[in-house]
Simulated assay, not measured.
Amino acid sequence: MDTTDEPRLITPISRRQFELYALSLERGPNFDPAHIFSAYQAGRGSASGCILLDAEQGTFASLALRRRVDHSGIKVDEGGPYSTPEATLDGLSIAMRVGNQPEPVPPGDRRPLRYMGPCLKGAD
C-alpha cells in the first residue's frame, strides 16, 4: 500500500488538461466519434481518466491512464458502454487505482526520449 501524502480521491480537471495526458496515447486525444464529457485526475497526476460520450449511440465510456515509474503515461483501462455518467464514474474511479504505486515498465520497453536542450559540444 502506498503511504505517500497524496489525496486518495479523484478530482475534476479541465478537458484540455486531460488532452495533455492523452498525448501519450497511440492516437493521441482522438476519441471520434465520442468526445470528452468530463475528466478527472488522482492526486498530483499519478492517474487520470475521462468519461467519453458517444452522442450517436447515447452511451458513455471510460478511459483510465496511469503514470509508469519512468514518468510516461499509459492506458490501463477502457470501460463501457454505460447508460449514465454516474455509472461510468464508478467504473473509472476503480480503474484509476488511486493510491497504488506507479505502473512498472514492461521488460524490453525502452524509456521515452527526453529533450535535453541543444548540444553545445563542438559549437563555435
Rank of each mutant, 00 (worst) to 15 (best):
H35L: 12
H35Y: 11
F37R: 11
F37D: 09
S38D: 03
S38W: 00
Y40A: 00
Y40K: 00
Y40I: 00
Q41F: 08
Q41K: 13
A42Y: 14
A42R: 12
A42L: 13
A42M: 14
A42P: 04
A42G: 11
G43V: 05
G43H: 07
R44Y: 08
R44K: 13
R44C: 11
R44M: 12
G45S: 08
G45W: 07
S46K: 11
S46A: 15
A47K: 10
A47I: 01
G49Y: 00
G49S: 03
G49F: 02
G49V: 03
C50G: 02
I51A: 01
I51N: 04
L52Y: 05
L52S: 02
L52N: 05
L52M: 04
L53D: 10
A55V: 13
A55T: 08
E56R: 09
E56F: 12
Q57N: 13
G58F: 10
G58W: 06
G58C: 08
T59C: 13
F60Q: 00
F60K: 06
F60M: 04
A61E: 11
A61D: 12
A61I: 07
A61G: 06
S62D: 06
A64C: 10
A64K: 09
L65K: 07
L65D: 11
R66N: 08
R66Y: 12
R67P: 00
R68A: 14
D70S: 02
